[in-house]
Design a binder for these strands. Structure first.
Lengths: 234, 234
DNA sequence: CACAACTGTGAGCAGTGCTCTTGCGGACGG
DNA sequence: CCGTCCGCAAGAGCACTGCTCACAGTTGTG
């Protein structure tokens, strides 16, 4: 039983989220203003607090929504690739992440940029959607490994350097927490890939390569993903 | 001829910058408040504007100072390593960057995190100090290559994938702009290393790996630098 | 129908960046 | 040595922010 009131409330909530995204994408995450949303909504400023407890509360909601949206884009891209084309699955996710980030740079900044001042994300809420993409990438690596189709080119997994015993213990404990027991070398490899991908995308989105560095990163993005895939061993 | 007045002014300026850094490191970059600085300085709020034109102006000054400080830390670390130990030079810079970032997380966020809302860095001012570290890393690669001591393990430079003709043209134009003509494969490799290093450090500093992901990244940071060095071909 | 829950109003507090006018005091030229 | 002038600080003020609270109106329900 859904009353008209509930329907109206839900519509208002959706409108608030939409306006909030608009603000974030136009002016950046910390410029998010509840009063401005109220104005756009044609309502007095204090009325907003009937719908959202605080600015941080709204920010958390956006964060969760953003992570979920990104994860769904990645999932969709991955689903379009045969399950046994491990490298292509991994690359498809990377490319989907990049496309999403370029389409919504401020949203990417909200998710993976520096922390918003004074705001600390409640990890119990943001963590599940926030790790979805990472887990998909990890799954591609694990499945490739299980199928004997992974030949890492760098790091300990390639036999170049070594994971110390303490590191091994700590890493295996962490992956066991996640429910998927894997060996330390693979965890190291997965995290290397993840951080490298984040670095590639963030460098492009945040324009961290000096004046005319941006076009270079743009040109190279796909080559970089391929290179990381090489390194991981696909 | 330096008047006492100028000395006093310079002292006040330095104090303002110090207080500003303190605020940035305690509360984050966008929480930087000129009024708060004035309070700490024991002066009325408007007096600050005798020293700094605007909040953005101060932010730019901090940005330049931060980049320079980081670059000097990196230079010092590199100088402690023999010039022909290319891999170690490159690793020393990476480790210095990470140490600096962990020591001053908010400062790292200011330099390499998402852009501060509403603030657009004047690239002509921030770019020269901002690219110093990148150029040092690039120099290590170039010199290693010249000495015949570089064997890339991934990407086009390893012959795995290819740089398209248009990409080659664009990349060589860009590196020519910088004054150092190098071939496209090396540029791709250098940028790959740079973005990967940024990704590793930012992931750790910004805690982007979920709840207990941070310790894993911390444990792995050095292994990741080694792996990236492997990939680049040191 | 009456009561209760929900929604919107407007005033108000404390904080922000930034501008403007006013006045003080040290530095400098005659 | 004195008067002028300029650098500095003060304080009021504008427009904005998040957030709270007492109040009024509307709507749903026992």
């Amino acid at each position: 039983m859904v009353t008209p009131r509930e329907r109206a409330r839900e519509r208002t909530m959706a409108e608030i989220r939409a306006l909030a995204w608009k603000q974030v994408e136009e002016l950046g995450a910390p410029a998010l203003s509840l009063r401005a949303i109220a104005r756009d909504l044609g309502v007095v400023s204090s009325a907003i607090y009937r719908y959202v407890a605080s600015r941080d509360d709204l920010l958390t909601a956006l964060l969760v929504e953003g992570f979920s949206d990104l994860a769904e884009a990645a999932d969709a891209a991955e689903a379009a690739v045969p399950a046994d084309a491990y490298r292509e699955r991994w690359l498809a996710i990377c490319r989907a992440m990049r496309a999403w980030a370029l389409e919504r740079p401020a949203a990417w900044g909200l998710l993976y940029g520096g922390p918003v001042p004074g705001y600390f994300a409640p990890q119990q809420e943001t963590s599940p959607p926030g790790t979805r993409v990472l887990l998909r990438l990890a799954a591609a690596i694990l499945e490739a490994k299980a199928a004997g189709r992974l030949e890492p080119k760098v790091g300990p997994a390639a036999g170049i350097s070594q994971v110390s015993p303490q590191q091994r213990l700590a890493l295996e404990a962490i992956s066991a927490d996640r429910g998927v027991p894997v060996d330390a070398e693979l965890v190291a490899l997965g995290i290397l890939g993840w951080t490298a991908v984040l670095g590639v995308i963030s460098s492009e989105v945040f324009e961290q390569l000096g004046p005319d560095g941006a076009p270079a990163v743009a040109l190279l993005a796909d080559i970089q993903f391929e290179s990381i895939a090489d390194a991981v061993g696909f």
